[in-house]
Amino acid sequence: MHGFADLLRRWNPSINLVAPSTLGDLWSRHIDDSIQLADLAPSTGTWLDIGSGGGLPGIVVAICRPDLQVTLLDSDARKATFLRTCIRELDLANATAVTDRIERHPPAGASHVSARALAPMPKLMPYVVRHLAPGGTAWLMKGERWKDEVDAVKTAWHFDLTDHASRTQPGAAILELTAIRHA
């Protein structure tokens, strides 16, 4: 994981992978936050991280969970280049980076779809459903207002929700959504 942290620090000044003000807290704010998702994930299936950006949580999941095939999807070619560099330099045989827009990328049929700091749930849900296999699980990393976001989609979407309290940010949660369907 230290190699990934070094790559983030080295590349961040040129392509802004994480907010510069958070680099001092890189481990607790970003890496440890993503590790908790890897700890929750089951040990089977394919994983698609949408809007991967700086590889959080996708690269961290790939590092922690070599049993999962992880695809990192981002529309920014510079960020996708960073992700490919991480995959190569960290020797992550279980990871692939793709440059494409979420809404244009062919449906992935992934067992698991994750997103962190990408969009509010009303915008995120169509992306998740587009790429999630039937019976799959969405893993959404949300901040303190996560309950408001869930309430905002309840009339348009039905799903089973398990919320996992964040170990790194009080009030934040990892949302585990299953049985997702349009209302």
Score class of each variant (00 low, 15 high):
150 V>H: 07
135 G>D: 00
69 Q>I: 12
117 A>F: 05
106 P>K: 06
80 A>S: 14
73 L>N: 07
82 F>L: 12
103 E>N: 03
107 P>R: 13
123 K>M: 02
142 K>L: 15
92 L>Q: 07
170 P>W: 04
95 A>V: 05
116 R>N: 05
152 A>Y: 08
139 W>Q: 04
110 A>I: 05
139 W>H: 08
130 R>S: 01
135 G>Q: 04
139 W>G: 08
68 L>M: 10
110 A>G: 05
156 A>N: 11
123 K>N: 09
65 R>A: 09
114 S>D: 03
130 R>Y: 00
105 H>I: 03
174 I>M: 00
129 V>R: 08
70 V>I: 11
104 R>S: 12
138 A>M: 02
140 L>Y: 00
170 P>K: 11
80 A>L: 05
176 E>W: 10
135 G>A: 04
127 Y>I: 07
73 L>P: 09
74 D>E: 09
173 A>K: 12
151 D>N: 11
96 T>S: 10
156 A>G: 09
142 K>Y: 11
80 A>F: 08
153 V>A: 07
76 D>I: 13
70 V>C: 08
144 E>L: 15
94 N>W: 10
125 M>G: 06
91 D>A: 09
159 F>P: 02
173 A>L: 06
130 R>D: 01
86 C>W: 07
141 M>T: 13
144 E>H: 15
167 R>I: 08
74 D>H: 10
104 R>F: 06
127 Y>P: 01
139 W>E: 08
131 H>K: 01
119 A>C: 09
89 E>H: 12
95 A>C: 06
148 D>E: 15
157 W>M: 03
164 H>M: 04
67 D>H: 07
177 L>H: 07
151 D>A: 15
157 W>I: 06
134 P>I: 03
118 L>P: 01
105 H>G: 00
105 H>P: 02
152 A>D: 13
79 K>V: 11
66 P>M: 11
169 Q>F: 09
103 E>A: 06
149 E>M: 13
107 P>Q: 10
84 R>T: 09
154 K>G: 07
177 L>P: 10
123 K>R: 14
141 M>Q: 15
135 G>P: 06
86 C>T: 12
109 G>A: 01
143 G>Y: 04
100 D>A: 15
99 T>S: 00
140 L>D: 01
159 F>R: 07
177 L>I: 08
66 P>C: 05
90 L>N: 04
177 L>T: 04
160 D>Y: 00
130 R>M: 01
90 L>A: 04
96 T>V: 14
77 A>M: 14
91 D>L: 03
161 L>W: 02
105 H>C: 03
67 D>V: 12
103 E>P: 05
92 L>I: 12
110 A>N: 01
105 H>R: 03
129 V>A: 09
73 L>Q: 06
165 A>L: 14
122 P>N: 06
172 A>V: 03
152 A>I: 10
72 L>A: 05
169 Q>D: 15
155 T>W: 07
134 P>S: 06
131 H>P: 01
171 G>H: 11
96 T>Q: 13
81 T>L: 10
68 L>V: 13
89 E>N: 12
145 R>L: 13
160 D>N: 03
104 R>L: 10
117 A>P: 02
